[in-house]
Amino acid sequence: MNFDSFGEFLAMGGHGFYVWWSYLLTAVVVSWILVWPLWRRRRFFEEQRGRLRRADALGQQTEVESNAPET
């Protein structure tokens, strides 16, 4: 351990403001990067679920492109 107390650790030898700002910013950006695709994915499933439910209620065949690649 390089620091004697937790207070010193937070102070970072007087540079605490800069160090913690950088790490906070990184945490925010990184969590945005990770959460955004998951959120998009969940919204997609919700939309599709609604679409399928409506299609099933009408007793219709869900429209699927027959020429779409299957593999």
Binding site: P37, Q48, V64, E65, E70
Partner: peptide, 19 residues
Amino acid sequence: IQGTRTEVLLRERRTRWVT
């Protein structure tokens, strides 16, 4: 990888496997 997986679903939403 996560982003591409979501992108795959969005662009292939009309195919049978995604449905």
